[in-house]
Structure formats: C-alpha cells, structure tokens
C-alpha cells in the first residue's frame, strides 16, 4: 500500500505536522513505534477514513481511498479496513455474538462462528462486554474487526492494558489471523518485546515524521552487537548474589538467569525489556 499523508493537527501541545510518505508491502506486519502524541493514532485514523488528511494519497492494492489531487475521499464504510481501537469500542448494548453479527452484512454468515471458535469466544458469546476481562474484550474486538474480512488490519495499541501473560497469548492470536487471512497489518505499539516478536518492519515516528525504518532487530540492538545468538525478554527479578547480581529474564516462556555486575544492572529494573546475547561462546544445539 502507498501512503503519503500531510496533516496539521492542533493538540494540547501545540501544532503537530504529520508528514509521511511510504510504501508498505502487501501481507506485511508493520509496527508504528514512537512516544505518545507523535501522531501514530492519527495515521491509523487517516488510513481508515475517520480523519481526513490535508493533502496526500492513500492507495491500497488497486483501490484509491484518498487522493487530494483527484478530490477522492472514500468513506470509512467503503474502505476495506478492520480497526481495533485502543479502548476496544465494544457495543455495550450487545452481547459478544451480537457485536460480531452487527459487523456482518448477513447474520447467518459462517465467518461469525468461525471467528468465535478461532478466538476461543464460544463460551462467552452470550455475555455482555462489561462482564468480560480486558483480554477477552480484546479478543472480541479483534474478532469483530475481522468479520467483514478486511485485507488491512489496523491495531491501535491493542495490548497496552493487558498483563504480560495475556499479552503474549494475544500476540499469538494476532499473528495467527494475520497469516491465516493474508492480512496487511499495521500495529501501533510501545512494547519492544511485542515489536520483536511480531513485526516484519518497524517504523519509528517522531514529531509526525518517520525517522527510522528497518527490521526490529536493527532498531533495538543499535546494530552494534554482532552476537551469534540473541534474544529479547523481560527482566523478572534482580538478586544480589555475593559480589554479582543474578538477573532473571523471561524469554518467551523460559526463564533465563544471567550474571551481571553492578555497573550492568545500574539502569535495569524489573519489567524492563532487554536483549540477551552471547558473543564469544558457541551455543550448543541438541535434539530434544
């Protein structure tokens, strides 16, 4: 898809000039990364048609959704987009199933049952949204965004409100549907671990402009570490053991203990995302 967007936004911190110009490959999962207030959500809103750019072009596959030169501005209803909102935006007056049915043109659509199974929502289908946990709401929001079988999925910090375990499970769900339905997905995220795990590419947004574009590994390792093997994880605990410190890092579902000296743990605290790499030793590989 081709995105060329210019928009002046007036916000609490003065004016923000969004100006981006990029091409995103079909079927890719791309993350928009940046501090809050740099225009990430506004970009998603412009792509989906909820916010009109001042100037530019939005083209997805062969369809032109917005072209300021040709005065084309396709309504959000007619854009092939699934949008998962940060606050989920589930309709409180409808049950889980009714939320999905509302999105469908035909209530009998098989895709509803298929999505209920895929997202493990069958047991929850008659519940109202306010009786669900954050992770469950998130799954409903994701399922509902997919009912119309969009080709483009926009996720606005979908996991920011969830705990680590739930987050990792939902990342699986998202990756799963991304591959299964052959979607192009744009994810807004702050979480380095999440970005590593999920995205093909990461776009760093700063003051409305893209300042970096490459694979997540390049961004977060700073490219200075040419490790033979490296993983990212989250610091679970830091314990003093004699003169050194034992840092426990959760990588995927495995807990890894790393020895560190006091200078290395200076800037570390529990919950930090870290890169664990080895340079000098050859890792052992063994069939299990």
């Amino acid at each position: 898809m081709k995105l060329s967007l210019a928009k002046n936004l007036r916000g609490a911190n003065g004016t923000l000039k969004i100006n981006i110009d990029l091409e995103i490959g079909d079927g890719k999962l791309v993350t928009l990364y940046g501090e809050s207030g740099v225009g990430k959500t506004s970009i998603l809103r412009m792509i989906s048609g909820l916010l009109q750019p001042d100037d530019g072009l939005i083209r997805f596959s062969d369809a032109i959704w917005f072209d300021s030169a040709l005065k084309v501005n396709v309504k959000p209803q007619q854009r092939d987009v699934g949008f998962v909102f940060q606050d989920y935006a589930l309709f409180p007056n409808m049950t889980v199933k009714e939320n999905l049915e509302f999105a469908a043109a035909d209530k009998e659509d098989e895709v509803i049952d298929e999505l209920l199974v895929l997202m493990e929502l069958v047991d929850l289908q008659d519940r109202k949204p306010d009786t669900l946990s954050g992770g469950q709401k998130q799954r409903v929001a994701l399922a509902r965004a997919l009912v119309r079988k969009p080709k483009l999925l926009l996720l606005d910090e979908p996991m920011s409100a969830l705990d680590r375990k739930m987050r990792s499970k939902l990342q699986e769900y998202i990756l799963n549907v991304h591959r299964k339905f052959g979607l192009t997905t744009i994810l807004v995220s702050h979480e380095t671990g999440e970005i590593f795990k999920m995205s093909d590419e990461v776009l760093v947004l700063s003051e409305g402009a893209i300042t970096f574009r490459d694979t997540p590994a390049k961004l977060f390792s700073g490219n200075s570490l040419s490790g033979k093997f490296k993983f990212t994880g989250e610091v679970v605990s830091i314990e003093k053991e004699g003169v050194v410190y034992i840092v426990s890092v959760l990588i995927g579902n495995d807990l890894v203990k790393v020895v560190a000296d006091s200078s290395e743990i200076e800037n570390l605290k529990e919950g930090d995302q870290v890169l664990v790499a080895s340079k000098a030793f050859n890792p052992i590989i063994q069939k299990i």
């Binding site: 854009r79 949008f83 999105a103």
Partner: peptide, 15 residues
C-alpha cells in the same frame, strides 16, 4: 459516549 463507538460502527460499514 466514547467517540470510538461511532467510529467502530463506521469502520464496520454501517451508516
């Protein structure tokens, strides 16, 4: 009401 309710409905193709 949260404006995202309206926006969600629009992105789901509803008038």
């Amino acid at each position: 009401l949260s404006s995202s309710l309206t926006e969600a409905s629009l992105t789901l193709g509803k008038s």
